[in-house]
Each structure stands twice: as structure tokens, then as C-alpha cells.
Design a protein around this nucleic acid. Structure first.
Length: 487
DNA sequence: TTTTGAGTTGTTCGA
DNA sequence: GTCGAACAACTCAAA
């Protein structure tokens, strides 16, 4: 008598530990087969950006190795998931399929269709919570609505119960669990996820270790070196207080509850020096922002393309392509902005504080539609996440939930002086300014000719003048946004 | 139903 | 340099 087969369909949960879908599939005597489907065919699914494709290649490579050590094969397939997953389940003779839930509109539609097809075929199908601390539909206001303000959302979610502790690690399965028949799988190289001609991924390779082991190592490094002092240090792009777990969370290489509880454990000093409660609370709050973004996306599936506040639909955006290109290239003439955009281009990542500064400049000073920024981030960020990216851009534009007042326009000079006081961040990513003294590195156009000459800076040649004067840009933005109120 | 307090991340101006 | 007020009015969420 042959053992039953369970299929686990992995998507944004590329890990072994605390993976409820994998655990459900591996529960019992059945042999387990895992699959990943590169779906570039289903309607509405957004194609992965370039940086995400690079990350996915390496994450899948690591995952295949880790699964193989547990006697589980990873099958790679390309095509519309509604066809591919049921077909694979039938070919394997699988009796059930498990997966972790996704929260975008198109993703939910695909998953529903897959579930219906499987059940038609008499195959059990079960979805699990592998990505969130709180399912979006479980957090509701007293009147049954979804929350549109962060603080009451976070309070209400936690009042319903603190995040569950992750279960103990999955017990490795014996080699006998391997499938006895050969299963066709795509070659990962054929998917061409890695850039070539040119290979622009050098900076990514130097910065990141994709995969579950990399995620665990990053968490450990953060707990030891970033959590203590996090509440204040997290705003400093020149220092190393941020967790940098975002891409690992985006691909599900580590679960949010693993991260949550690992930070909470440091309160007591377990496994290290005790950390002030304020730092742990601030970090937990950032995880709750991730929850809130998913909450918003679930209730507003078009969050990445449609203004959360409809009155923004009439906003007179100025689509100046030359200005957008300068922003993308890190040539705006505002050093903190250019440092951020170049950090993004080189490493696939940008410090959170700097994301707000560059976003504000694009939307307010340049009056460019936030969706242009959202698309650029989607393509270039290794942590590109449908919920976080869309919610973040709508927040900075003022069109989102719980958004800042329109008159809150970031001053890129002041922000640079406040959060990169020595200019170390600018010097690192805008090397042509590295020799300027800290007093002018955030505003090189104010430096004397002697200072510029001594630092080897030729304004307008080696480094541009500001794309728009701050005071003029601010005034223009306030006028445009104020008109929105009267409309 | 009405009322009330509150709301991630800022800047500028004038004292 | 530091401090408080002004910048608008609105929406949200709960009492």
C-alpha cells in the first residue's frame, strides 16, 4: 500500500520554521511534495520587480536545499496557478494541498479559484495564516468596520490577544518520505530571474543573504546590535539600528511571530543583555504597521493604484519626466535624497526615514503622482511588498488612511542635518560630496567657492544644483494641496 | 444620535 | 539656540 501524498504550495512563505501550511502537509505519514509556481499569466497579478526577481532566485535555491535535507522535493512550475496547481496535484495523486494566505485582491481571486478546482477534483484544500500576526478580518471597530487609523487598530488587535508564540521547529522527516516517482520540475535558471547583460546585482549580493538561514542570522544580528537604542536610533540612516528584516518578511523567510517573540524575549534579557521596554515596544509597533498595511490592502484591494481618499482623484499632478528621471537616478541636488535613491539602486533597500524624505520630495516638491514612486520602488526594492509599499506611498502623498496633514512638507536640508548630522550617509552613497564639511554637505550650493574647490566639487558639473528650490517647491505644493480642500 | 478626544514620522515664525 | 503656536479642518472611533 502506498502512502498518501500531500502537496504544499509555497508562495510568500519560503521557510521551514513556523510555516503552518508546511506543518499541516507534513502532519501524519503522508509523503510531502512542495511546489512553487511562477505565475505570470493570471489576470491582475503584478509581475515581480527586478530586485524581487533576484531575491526570489536565491531564496528558492536555499529553500530547495533545506527541503531536500528533510526529504521533501521542491517542484518548480510556470504558468497560471489555477491550471498548474490542480494539474500537479492530480499528477502526484495528492489527497490534499496546503498554502499560506495572501491578501491582495487578485491573489485572493486566484487562490479561491484554485481551491474550487481542487475540491471539484475531490482534493482537500486548506489555507493557513503564514504571514500575519492578526488576520485582517478579525480586527474590527465596534460597528463592524475596518480600522482606518493606526493607533486604534493596533490597540484593538492586541486587546484581542497578543500574537501567538511560534510552535517548536518542524521535526525533520526521514528520507523515506521522498516521492518514489520522478516529478518534472523547471530549472530555476530557465526562469531567468537573475539580471544579465548587464548584471546589476553586485551591490545586492554584497548586502544581502536571501533565504531562511540569512533571515535567522539577520534577526540575531539585530537583536544583538540594533534593538537596544532602537526607539531613537531607527531614525538614523547613518547608523545600524534598523532590523533590515523587511525583505525576509516580504518573502516569508521568517514569520512575524518569530520576530515578535524574539524581540520580546530580550525584555527579560534572555539570551543577552536586557533591552529597555521602550525599544521593544517601538519595534513591535513597526511590526504592527506591517499588519495595518495588510489590513488596509485586504479591505481596499486596489490600494496600489487607487487613492484611498477619493478627493485626490482630481489632484493636478505634474508628470515632468525629466524631474522623475533625476529623482530615480539620485541627481536631484539634495544630498540626502540622492543618497537614498542611490542606496536603493545599489543595494535594493533604503532606510525608512529616507524613504519618507525622497517620497515627500517627489510628491510635494515635484508634484509627481505617488504611483510613479510606488512603481519605481516596486521594481527596485528587494522588500517590495504590495501592502507596505502602497500604504507607505499613499501615506506620504496624503491620499492614504491616517495620512499626515497636507502642510507637512519635509525639508530635505533640515531632515539631512537632523538625521545624518555628520553627513556620513551622504558621503557613503554620494561620494562626490564626501570631502565637504558636515556644515554644508546637506546643502552644497551654500558652500563658498573655496570650500567647494577644496572638496573637489564643481556644482552643476560633478554634482547638480537642486532640481527645485525648497522654499518655492514648498509654496507650490502647499498651494496645490490647499486647492484640494476647496474642490 | 451626539459628543468628544485624538490622530507616526514636520516646518516655520516670532518671541 | 530654544520654545510654543500656527498651519485646517476632518475623519475616525468610542463613550
Amino acid at each position: 500500500m502506498t502512502a498518501a501524498t500531500h502537496l504544499v504550495w509555497l508562495r510568500n512563505d519560503l521557510r521551514i520554521a513556523d510555516n503552518p501550511a508546511l506543518a499541516a502537509a507534513a502532519d501524519g505519514e503522508a509523503r510531502v511534495v512542495a511546489c512553487f509556481v511562477l505565475d505570470e499569466h493570471s489576470p491582475g497579478l503584478r509581475p515581480l520587480g527586478g530586485a524581487s526577481r533576484w531575491w526570489l532566485h536565491h531564496s528558492l535555491t536555499r529553500l530547495a536545499e533545506a527541503l531536500d535535507r528533510r526529504g521533501i522535493a521542491l517542484v518548480l512550475r510556470r504558468g497560471a496557478a489555477t491550471d498548474v496547481v490542480p494539474a500537479l496535484a492530480r499528477a502526484l495523486g495528492a489527497t490534499r494541498v496546503d498554502w499560506s494566505r495572501r491578501y491582495g485582491g487578485a491573489e485572493i481571486a486566484v487562490d479561491k479559484a484554485v481551491k474550487a478546482r481542487l475540491r471539484q477534483d475531490g482534493i482537500e484544500a486548506a489555507s493557513h495564516n503564514g504571514a500575519l500576526l492578526y488576520e485582517p478580518w478579525t480586527v474590527k471597530t465596534k460597528t463592524g468596520e475596518f480600522f482606518k487609523v493606526f493607533t486604534p487598530f493596533a490597540r484593538s488587535a492586541r486587546a484581542g490577544g497578543e500574537p501567538a508564540a511560534p510552535p517548536p521547529a518542524l521535526v525533520p522527516r526521514p528520507i523515506a518520505g521522498r516521492p518514489t516517482v520522478a516529478i518534472e520540475t523547471d530549472s530555476l535558471d530557465d526562469w531567468r530571474l537573475l539580471p544579465r547583460a548587464p548584471d546589476w546585482a553586485g551591490g545586492l549580493r554584497a548586502t544581502w543573504q536571501p533565504g531562511e538561514d540569512g533571515a535567522i542570522a539577520r534577526l540575531a544580528a539585530f537583536l544583538d546590535a540594533g534593538l537596544r537604542g532602537y526607539a531613537d536610533g531607527r531614525d538614523r540612516p547613518d547608523q545600524g539600528f534598523t532590523s533590515r528584516l523587511s525583505p525576509h518578511l516580504a518573502f516569508g523567510e521568517i514569520s512575524p511571530r518569530t520576530v515578535w517573540h524574539a524581540a520580546a524575549a530580550r525584555l527579560d534579557g534572555l539570551g543577552g543583555e536586557p533591552v529597555p521596554a521602550r525599544d521593544v515596544e517601538k519595534f513591535h509597533s513597526e511590526l504592527m504597521w506591517r499588519e495595518f498595511s495588510h489590513h488596509l490592502l485586504y479591505h481596499r484591494p486596489d490600494l496600489a493604484t487607487v487613492n484611498f481618499q477619493p478627493r485626490f482623484d482630481h489632484f493636478p499632478w505634474n508628470g515632468d519626466p525629466a524631474a522623475l528621471a533625476r529623482w530615480q537616478a539620485g541627481q536631484t541636488g539634495y544630498p540626502i535624497v540622492d543618497a537614498g535613491m542611490r542606496q536603493l539602486w545599489q543595494t535594493g533597500y533604503m532606510h525608512n526615514r529616507v524613504r519618507m524624505i525622497v517620497g515627500s520630495l517627489l510628491v510635494k516638491h515635484l508634484l509627481i503622482d505617488w504611483r510613479a514612486g510606488e512603481r519605481w520602488f516596486w521594481d527596485t526594492l528587494v522588500d517590495a511588498d504590495a501592502a507596505n509599499n502602497a500604504a507607505g506611498w499613499q501615506w506620504i502623498a496624503g491620499s492614504g488612511a491616517d495620512a499626515a496633514p497636507y502642510f507637512r512638507v519635509f525639508n530635505p536640508i533640515l531632515q539631512g542635518e537632523k538625521f545624518d548630522p555628520d553627513g556620513a550617509y551622504v558621503a557613503r552613497y554620494v561620494p562626490e560630496l564626501a570631502r565637504l564639511p558636515a556644515s554644508v554637505i546637506q546643502k552644497p550650493w551654500t558652500a563658498s567657492p573655496q570650500t567647494l574647490h577644496a572638496a573637489g566639487v564643481r556644482l552643476g558639473e560633478s554634482y547638480p544644483r537642486p532640481v527645485v528650490d525648497h522654499d518655492k517647491g514648498r509654496a507650490r505644493a502647499l498651494a496645490a494641496f490647499a486647492a484640494l480642500q476647496d474642490a
